[in-house]
Nucleic acid binder design. Structure first.
Lengths: 336, 336
DNA sequence: TCACGTATCCAAATCGTTTTGCATGACAGG
DNA sequence: CCTGTCATGCAAAACGATTTGGATACGTGA
C-alpha cells in the first residue's frame, strides 16, 4: 500500500532514472522512446501505481475526457438504456460519462443545468429529448463541447443528430389499428406539448388516419406529460368525452401504462372494449398485463450511436453535421 | 455572445480594474473586499460570463467537486432512484455526480471501474450493493475519496454506511405468509450468492420460518442473479422440485417479476396456486399483474442520505464512521 | 510626530502535467 | 577525420486558478 493518489510523474521519473518529460512521452507515445527506457518507465509506473492527475492534465490539454448526457427524467427506462449505451462506448475510449437530469417541471431547469455542465468544460454533450431552445444549443456549441442532439432534426441547430424513425413508426402502428383491427374512434395522448418526440409521433398518428380518409378527432387528443401520471390524466380526459374512444394511442410506454391503470380502475376490459398502445418498448411494456402493443425504439443503440458520433468528433472529424436515423419495429402484444 | 468558455480571471480583473487576486477573493469570500470593489467585480463577472476553469481550480485546491456512484446494474430501477436521490443533494451543493456501472458478470469489473474513478480524484464515492472485497474498499479509502457503502455493515470496512432494515423487512413479509396466509412450502430465490442484500434478506426469511418452528427447505432455495432473467431461472428450478412450493419469496422485485413470467408461461395461477413476493417496491412492482406484494425500500431516500453523509464529510466532519438505517414497510398487493 | 493597527489590494509562488526547442551521442557517408 | 542525420532525453515554459506574505494608505492614540 503506497501513498496511493499521491505519487506524481517526477516520482516515476526518479524511480526509472529519467526525466518527467520522458515518462510523459512513454505514456502518451507522442515521441519515440528507446525500448529499454520504455520498459524501465512502464515498470516504475506499475510499481508505484502512478495515475496522472486529471486536473493537471486537463489544465494543460484543455480537455476533460468527460462527456455528459442531459435528460428530462432520469427514472424513465428509455433514458436509462440510453445512458447505458453511451457509457459503454465512452468507457471503452477512457471517457467518463455524467448523466444529468433537467426536469421539465420542478427542480433545476435546462439552462441552469447546461450552465453547470459548460462550466465543467465537458468535451461533449448528448442532449436528450427536450423542447430545447435555440439559445440552449448555442450555449453548448459556444462552450466548445461537441453536441449530439436526440430526436430532433438536423436543421434545427448546431451539432449532429440521432433519432429513431418516429413518425414512420407511429404511422405503421396506427395503420394496424385502423386496418386489420378496425378501430373506429382512435384517441391520442401526447407528452408535454411541444416536446419531442411527441410532435413526430403525433404526426405519424395523423398521417395514418389521413391515409384512411379520416380526420383527427380533436376532442380525443390530450397533451399531458411523458409519465405514468400523465397517462392517467390523459386517459381520464379521453374516457370522459361525450363519445369515448375504442382505442388510445399513447406517445410512450409510461403514458400507456398510466392509461391501463385508469382502464383497470374503471373496469374497462383491454383490449376488449379499449385498445391501448405505447411507444419505446421499455422493459415494463412486456411486464404489464395485458402486455403492451408498442414500437421498439432501440434506446441502447441510440446511445451507442450518439457516443460514437461524439468520439469521432473528438478524434478530429470536422465534416458536416451528420444525422443517424435508426429503424423501428412494431411489436404486437395483447393490449390491442 | 462572447468567446464563452474562453474568458479567464485576468480578463475579469482587467474589466473591473483590479487584480486577479481580488477577483478570486470576491468569488470565494476568503478575504474581505470593500463593497465598492466587490460590486465592480461581480458586475464584470456577470457581463463577461466568467466561469472558473475547473481543471485549474482543481489543480490548485486538490478537489474536483465531483462524486461518484457505482452500481452493478444501471438499468435496475432501484439503482436509478438511488442515483436521482444522490444527484438531487449533490447538485444543490454544486457537486457533479457520475454514475458508473460495474456489471457482476461481463463488462468491466469492479476493480477496473474503481481504478478509473480513483484516477479521476473524485471527492467522494457511493458504493452500491456489491459483494465488494476489502481490497476494493481500501483502494477507495486510500485514494483520498470519502466513502459511503450501501447495504452492508459498518464493521465490514472503512467509510460510512446507509442501509435499509433488510432482515427485519423480509422477516415481517414472510411472517405474513406463514401466519395469516398459511402457506406451507415457502421457497426463496436470491441474487448472486454472497452479494448483499441477498444475505440479509435470506436471513429474514430464515428467521421468520424459525419463529414458526420450521426449517428452511434447502431444496427450495436458489441463488441466481438480481435480474428478471435470474428470477426465471430460479423459478423454473423451484417449480421442477419433487415437492414444489406454494409460495416463492424473491430477493428483489426483478426476480419476482421473472418468477411471474414462469408462472404465466406454465399456466400456474398466482396467487391461487402460487404466491410470489418481491422486495424494493420499484415502479414496475405495481405495474405487473398480479401486482407484487413486496417491501418498500426507499431508494431515493437512501440516495439522499448517502449524499448527505458525503457532503458532511467534505465539509470537514471527521467524527467516527456513521451508519444510517432506514425503515421498511410491507406492501400487500395481489400476488400473495 | 511617531508607532502601530486595520483595511485593502497586489505580486509571486504554487499545484502536476504536457509540449517545444535544444543538447548530446552515435553512426554513416565522404 | 569531418560533417550532417538520426535517435534519444532533458530543461523550461506554458495552462489558469488559489493562496500567502507583503505593500500601501489611512486612522488613532500617545
Amino acid at each position: 500500500m503506497h501513498g496511493s493518489g499521491r505519487v506524481k510523474i517526477v516520482d516515476v521519473a526518479a524511480a526509472a532514472g529519467v526525466s518527467a518529460t520522458t515518462v510523459s512521452h512513454v505514456i502518451s507515445g507522442r515521441r519515440p522512446v528507446s525500448a529499454a527506457t520504455r520498459a524501465r518507465v512502464e515498470d516504475a509506473v506499475r510499481r508505484l501505481g502512478y495515475q496522472a492527475d486529471p486536473s493537471a492534465r486537463g489544465l494543460r490539454t484543455q480537455r476533460t475526457d468527460t462527456v455528459g448526457l442531459v435528460v428530462p427524467d432520469i427514472t424513465n427506462p428509455f433514458n436509462t438504456e440510453l445512458a447505458a449505451g453511451i457509457q459503454a462506448v465512452a468507457y471503452a475510449r477512457g471517457l467518463l460519462t455524467v448523466v444529468c437530469e433537467a426536469p421539465m417541471t420542478g427542480g433545476p431547469q435546462l439552462p441552469a443545468v447546461l450552465g453547470q455542465l459548460t462550466a465543467r468544460r465537458l468535451d461533449g454533450i448528448v442532449l436528450g429529448r427536450f423542447g430545447a431552445r435555440r439559445a440552449d444549443l448555442d450555449l453548448i456549441a459556444g462552450s466548445g463541447a461537441r453536441l449530439v442532439r436526440l430526436g430532433t432534426r438536423i436543421a434545427d441547430g448546431p451539432g449532429d443528430v440521432v433519432r429513431g424513425a418516429e413518425t414512420e413508426g407511429m404511422r405503421d402502428l396506427v395503420r394496424c389499428l385502423v386496418g386489420e383491427r378496425g378501430y373506429r374512434r382512435i384517441g391520442f395522448i401526447g407528452g408535454e406539448a411541444g416536446v419531442e418526440p411527441g410532435g413526430e409521433r403525433y404526426e405519424g398518428y395523423r398521417q395514418a388516419l389521413a391515409e384512411a380518409g379520416r380526420a383527427v378527432p380533436e376532442e380525443l387528443v390530450a397533451w399531458t406529460g411523458f409519465t405514468r401520471e400523465g397517462g392517467r390524466a390523459g386517459a381520464a380526459l379521453l374516457l370522459d368525452a361525450a363519445e369515448p374512444p375504442d382505442a388510445v394511442v399513447c406517445a410512450n410506454d409510461l403514458i400507456a401504462i398510466g392509461a391501463l391503470d385508469v382502464a383497470r380502475a374503471r373496469g374497462i376490459d383491454v383490449p376488449g372494449r379499449l385498445a391501448v398502445t405505447g411507444y419505446d418498448d421499455i422493459d415494463a411494456a412486456s411486464m404489464v398485463s395485458p402486455a403492451l402493443t408498442t414500437v421498439v425504439n432501440p434506446a441502447r443503440e441510440i446511445g451507442r450511436s450518439a457516443a460514437r458520433l461524439l468520439v469521432d468528433r473528438l478524434d478530429g472529424d470536422t465534416g458536416p453535421a451528420r444525422e443517424v436515423v435508426l429503424t423501428h419495429q412494431v411489436v404486437r402484444r395483447a393490449s390491442a
